[in-house]
Simulated scan of single mutants.
Amino acid sequence: MSNEADVRPDDEIDLVDLARALIRRRWVIIGTFLVCTLGAAFYAFSQERVYAFTTSIELGEFGPQEYVASASGTKNTIEARILLSAKRAYLKERNLESMPFDVSVSSAQESSFVNLVTEAPLDQQETVAEFHDRVYKRLRDEHQSRLTILEDESDAKLKNLRESLKAEQRRMKVLEGLSVNSTEQAGNGETEAQALAGEDVRATLSSSDAALTLLLSQLQLNERISEREERINEIQSNLREEQTRRSWIKPTRAEDLAIASLSPVGTSRALILVLGALLGGMLGVFMAFFVEFAARVREAGTAS
């Protein structure tokens, strides 16, 4: 029983002993902390500040909420084809082996904008803007060819609608003229019927048949006139709609190139300093225990 009591305290961690060891090795902790903190400070302030340069490209339109291409499709086109071609031309012109910066493409879902984003130092803004402009112009030219086709199709449709409207209006005038003539004939027929009514019953019956025929003809003319009016209204509605669509055609455009972010991007200097201080503190405690352990091992070896 007494042996077990003597052994148990040796297996427990003595917090007071640990505190004494940390106090004895405080200079190891302080030194390690200062080295890590100063190293983090040197790294943080030696890094060049990097900003995000953004170029927003608004997709071309050929009608309200009708775009020459979707934002996601445009993003894929830029990444798979236009960006690669632009990089090759850029490297060849400047005789470089690799790009000094990278370009990413982003687009929000159901949006009419595609963004070119580059992270680079502030002194490279002009170079980034030049490259963004190169990518934008290639996309704009590709979209413009599609818009030209849509413009030609819209112009042809407008021409056909105007010609159809003129033709329907000419037919309408003819029908209106026939209607006026039919009304006049019906009035003359009634006058003749009244004049002949007292002379001959047969003439009266004949005049009544003629009046009935004119009346039926008038009804048919009115029906055809109504149909023409509906057709004219329909053509005019289609014409206004197509004119609105045609006037809405806008090319793909970018107002500003490589707009710099208000503050640097990436890990901030303050965060690097905090992380360095935390790492220095933890590493300092570890080094203090390691030095204390090594010292005790030497003492045990010397005593033996």
Rank of each mutant, 00 (worst) to 15 (best):
V201F: 06
A156Y: 08
S226R: 14
S179H: 04
N188M: 09
E168F: 13
L161K: 04
R228T: 13
E190F: 02
T148P: 00
E223S: 09
L196N: 01
D152N: 11
L178S: 08
A156I: 11
A210M: 12
S226E: 14
A186G: 05
D141P: 01
K159C: 03
A193R: 00
L196H: 00
K159Q: 13
D152P: 01
L215P: 06
S206T: 14
L215N: 14
Q185E: 14
A197L: 04
R228K: 14
S164F: 05
I149F: 05
I225D: 03
E176W: 07
R162Y: 13
T213Y: 15
I232D: 00
L150C: 01
Q144M: 03
N181S: 14
T191G: 03
I149C: 01
L165C: 03
L205N: 09
G198D: 04
K157D: 06
E176D: 09
E223P: 01
G177H: 10
L150A: 03
S226W: 08
G198C: 02
R202E: 12
D152C: 00
A195F: 02
R231T: 09
V180R: 09
S217A: 11
E190R: 08
L175R: 06
S164P: 03
L215S: 13
E227M: 09
G187T: 05
M172I: 06
R170D: 15
R140V: 04
A195I: 04
L196A: 04
N222I: 07
L158R: 03
R171Q: 11
V201N: 07
E163W: 09
A156L: 12
D200I: 00
Q144F: 02
G177T: 12
H143R: 00
A203P: 00
K166T: 15
D200C: 06
T191P: 01
E199N: 05
L147K: 00
L178Q: 10
K137F: 02
L158A: 01
S154A: 12
S179L: 09
E229W: 01
A210F: 13
H143S: 00
L139H: 00
S154D: 08
S226Q: 15
N181W: 08
H143D: 02
L219F: 09
R228N: 14
Q194V: 04
A193L: 03
S154L: 07
Q218W: 02
R228S: 07
E229K: 08
E192F: 10
E153V: 07
E229Q: 12
L139K: 00
L165D: 04
E176C: 02
E192P: 00
L196K: 01
M172A: 10
L221H: 03
E199V: 12
D209A: 13
